[in-house]
């Protein structure tokens, strides 16, 4: 095909583009995979049985706020990196600051607790499954985030993959917090955070293969 033929074809196919097209692609991609991930949590793990009483506790909302901030920052990163010159520095800074605050809070909590209880606060009763479950819940979201980016124009694929993975991990940890009844700050700071960083790493590695265009 000659370039002239191509131009004729593309010109013939031209349709107006909404200024919100990228926004909607992010909403649709992550929205559908959020539903899938939530359904996975609901039918496979189940909601925490004490949901009603938990909703009155400070710890539930701390967990909620922590994962929500990371999820929003992650989603924003996916949208930003979808543009050819996109940078996710702001989102990463917000995520890093949030994680640091959580770690500081967790350390303060440990400092106020007798040392013989430290171990229990770190391991809770679900330490064996927490991070793994978040990573599993993040997989549909990772697919969704990759779908979003594959239709757009990220030019730094490893960074784009990392953004997709962090967003997927953060949203998955938000979903998981409706199942998980752990309430110790140090537990959240370690295992939830790990559950967000591991999908980030998976995304960064997969990005340069999956996101090529």
């Amino acid at each position: 095909m000659t370039t002239d033929d191509l131009i004729a074809r593309l010109t013939g196919e031209l349709k107006p583009v909404s200024r919100l097209a990228v926004f909607w692609r992010v909403v649709i991609g992550l929205g559908i995979s959020l539903v899938v991930s939530s359904a996975m949590m609901y039918f496979w793990l189940g909601m925490r049985p004490d949901m009603m009483t938990a909703a009155g506790t400070m710890m539930f909302w701390t967990k909620f706020a922590y994962t929500l901030i990371l999820a929003v920052a992650g989603t924003w990163a996916v949208k930003r990196i979808a543009y050819p010159l996109g940078s996710i520095r702001v989102s990463l800074a917000v995520m890093a600051a949030t994680i640091v605050v959580m770690i500081v809070l967790a350390m303060a909590k440990l400092a106020m607790t007798p040392p013989d209880q430290h171990m229990a606060m770190m391991t809770g009763h679900t330490v064996a499954v927490c991070t793994r479950n978040i990573v599993l819940l993040s997989l549909p979201l990772l697919v969704g985030a990759f779908w979003v980016l594959r239709g757009l124009a990220p030019t730094r694929l490893t960074v784009a993959g990392a953004a997709a993975g962090l967003a997927a991990g953060a949203i998955a940890s938000l979903v998981y917090s409706f199942h998980c009844d752990e309430s110790a700050m140090p537990f959240i700071a370690v295992w939830y955070t790990l559950g967000i960083l591991i999908p980030g790493l998976i995304g960064a590695i997969a990005g340069r293969f999956v996101l090529r265009w």
Binding site: T3, L10, A82, L152, A153
Partner: peptide, 16 residues
């Protein structure tokens, strides 16, 4: 050139 024009076309929504 053709690949770039094609990408411009399919990804034109990413022009801010």
């Amino acid at each position: 050139v053709q690949e770039t024009l094609m990408s411009l076309h399919t990804r034109r929504a990413t022009y801010e």
